[in-house]
Design a protein around this nucleic acid. Structure first.
Lengths: 208, 208
DNA sequence: GTCTATAAGAAGATAGAC
DNA sequence: GTCTATCTTCTTATAGAC
């Protein structure tokens, strides 16, 4: 996120407030106060409250793509990542899982954006689809493709690789939602994450 | 839920509206209209809007306990349920999973209540704890105890049974949240549920 | 218990000075 | 671009007739 323009600061503060209180729970006066101006001035930058919300969604979509490219793993193209994990070990798979987990839980914008979508998902069809796409379909598709390729190299037991992706990702996703609700449980979840991946490897990886 | 008293009808309609629009998104006039009265009359039954919300939470807690007792499995005391699954088979484990899934997704009140907690979890510490307790801790504890007992009977491979519970439950929980957001994907999720449990059994159950 | 009427305030949004 | 002032509408909640 850039903080160069006032527009960007409005987007950031609005996201922060929407993530805590929901769209309806935040007033234009509140946003203005957080930015350090009067409510009327917001209308010089955005047509209205809904325009701010739309702008947040657009900004975060492009931000997500930028960030994902900076991770060690590509995150979008598993065929580019597969070389990294050719001789997959428990350690390495823990690497993927932990990286995924820590990024999602610690990155301020990602966390706020996910909270905002979580709150808004039942009020808006578009938000619902965006949430499922980003936090389910894309994640599962990536893992499924990665596991399929690793299996062709003879690293894994024979299995349905979509289900295998689900077995890898769903526990991690579930633990992320716990940390969103109760940040004080992060250490507990990190320990459980370690056990999860250890057991996942025992159960699915042929020899390690 | 009883519909005998006006109070109960107010609770039901409020829950229905809160689940769709969130607490702040619903006005007293809206609730009153849904019940079939004027907003002022609501104050003869509840002190205010927040009192309705509190009352919903209390009502749903007791309702959940009642409902769970009516399921084939006890749902709270795995030692009472373990006899049912002594000679666990893929079919039977599919039975637990599917029952869990269908109850959570189809039961109107459970679904509305879960949506309401989902929306409210970041605004209220109590709601956050209630959500985690009901949809994570209690579910995992139950499954862990069940798997531990089944393992002592020699049905399962050696494993960490908390992680095993997570591997069983987290995919189911994740699929439930998909159906909450996108009910049109229920068939897809039911098919995935079947595959999930099939593979879970292949991976964890010794002989079947 | 339900109604009408209304208080008291907060909401989103706009006009126009600077 | 930001401000003050204001419009209009909506909010929760109460008073008092029936």
């Amino acid at each position: 996120m850039n903080f160069e323009t006032t527009k960007d600061r409005i987007i950031y503060e609005s996201l922060r407030l929407f993530a805590e209180k929901g769209f309806d729970g935040v007033s234009m006066r509140e946003i203005a106060a957080a930015v350090g101006m009067k409510a009327a001035s917001l209308y010089s930058h955005f047509k209205g409250k809904e325009a701010i919300y739309t702008s947040i969604v657009d900004t975060m979509k492009s931000r997500y793509n930028d960030e994902v490219m900076n991770l060690q793993i590509d995150g979008n193209d598993p065929s580019a990542d597969v070389k990294v994990y050719e001789q997959i070990s428990s350690e390495q798979l823990y690497g993927i899982g932990r990286e995924l987990f820590v990024y999602f839980v610690h990155d301020e914008y990602t966390r706020m954006y996910r909270k905002m979508l979580t709150i808004g998902q039942f009020q808006n069809e578009m938000i619902a689809q965006e949430y499922s796409r980003q936090y389910y379909d894309e994640a599962i598709t990536y893992q499924r493709q990665l596991f399929t390729m690793l299996a062709q190299m003879g690293n894994f037991k024979d299995a349905d690789y979509e289900v295998m992706a689900l077995h890898f990702y769903a526990p991690i996703y579930t633990m992320i939602t716990i940390c969103d609700r109760q940040p004080e449980r992060e250490d507990e979840m990190l320990e459980l994450l370690r056990k999860h991946i250890e057991q996942f490897v025992k159960v699915y990886v042929l020899k390690n």
